[in-house]
């Protein structure tokens, strides 16, 4: 019981910290001091205190965007094991629910963007759905490798670090899957080199341009939901890269948190060292991610 409570608390509290760490890493790489690590929490607090402005063209769909985005990220977080601990909800086939929960969130974020009637937001919405359409097979092939390795269709047992085939046979596929999942993570969470949340040119953005018209608590929910999505997908990737436990449950929680922060530092480093790709190359990379994880499947079946 206690680990479920810790799971939920971590899921609710930690996600903005990841954004803070990414920001700090980027600042250090650029030779700046940067905002404090807790800055995203201050931002969220401030946004929830603010009033809102709603565009006159919008309807309930516009308001549903942030709500659904946050609710789906929360639910998806309940399906993922954090570190070596079991997820609160786990059943055979929950990996499909996991992928499709994000699809539900995407439906409403994209529809909310179209609801404003702004050309920029329409652009972002079209890009978001197009790119994720390619990210989906990559994610599924990645899950297939994990399912094949563990002989299970439930995320908790898929990620519990036991490989009946032996670690030696699993390693090559796991490396491919980790690479593919990292690309998917960067794309789905709008990080450089696929999307740049900090640019000031709406024409080149994906996610940020969709939420131009959101303000106040709605925008706060979007930021929070996006951070949570990053956290949840990061937790999956972490288990693929670090598929072992330390024995003591408390050490495991510590390892998980250290791993997540390490992942945030890694993302920050990638963001500092790479430039954003041209928009038209994003699909190419996504197809590459699909091929990587599909190849991982083939390696297992030879």
């Amino acid at each position: 019981m206690s680990h479920i409570i810790i799971h939920i608390i971590l899921l609710l509290v930690l996600p903005p910290l990841l954004l803070g760490v990414i920001g700090k890493t980027k600042a250090l790489f650029a030779g700046r001091i940067g905002p404090p690590v807790l800055q995203p929490y201050y931002d969220l607090w401030k946004l929830f205190q603010k009033g809102s402005v709603f565009s006159t063209t919008t309807t309930w769909v516009f308001r549903a965007g942030p709500v659904v985005g946050l609710a789906t990220a929360l639910l998806a977080g309940m399906l993922i094991p954090f570190g070596g601990h079991w997820a609160p909800v786990s059943f055979n086939g929950d990996m499909i629910l996991f992928a499709y929960l994000f699809a539900l969130g995407r439906f409403f974020t994209a529809a909310a963007a179209l609801d404003t009637g702004s050309a920029f937001e329409g652009m972002g919405s079209a890009r978001e759905v197009t790119f994720s359409c390619l990210a989906e097979p990559a994610l599924f092939f990645g899950f297939l490798v994990l399912a094949k390795l563990s002989g299970s269709l439930s995320l908790t047992t898929m990620l519990d670090g036991t490989f009946p085939l032996g670690a030696g046979a699993a390693a090559p596929s796991l490396v491919l899957v980790a690479a593919s999942l990292f690309i998917v993570l960067l794309v789905e969470n709008c990080r450089i080199p696929f999307d740049d949340p900090n640019t000031h040119l709406e024409l080149t953005m994906i996610h940020e341009v969709m939420v131009l018209d959101h303000s106040g608590p709605a925008f706060g929910m979007i930021l929070y939901g996006a951070a949570m999505k990053l956290f949840v997908m990061g937790a999956v990737l972490l288990r693929v890269v670090v598929p072992f436990e330390l024995g003591n449950p408390w050490y495991d929680w510590g390892l998980f948190m250290a791993g997540m922060l390490g992942l945030a530092v890694l993302i920050g480093m990638v963001e500092s060292m790479m430039a954003r790709f041209r928009m038209v190359f994003v699909p190419t990379f996504l197809v590459a991610a699909c091929l990587l994880s599909a190849f991982g499947v083939i390696l297992l079946l030879r």
Binding site: S125, V129, P137, F140
Partner: peptide
């Protein structure tokens, strides 16, 4: 069958584009 899983995921993604577009362009905006 495993390949078909990937295809099904792709089809799901494209259906998403199709229906976000249908709802977004027809029902939403101005």
């Amino acid at each position: 069958l495993l390949l078909t899983v990937g295809v099904l995921a792709l089809v799901g993604g494209m259906a998403m584009i199709c229906f976000v577009r249908l709802i977004g362009i027809v029902l939403l905006g101005a």
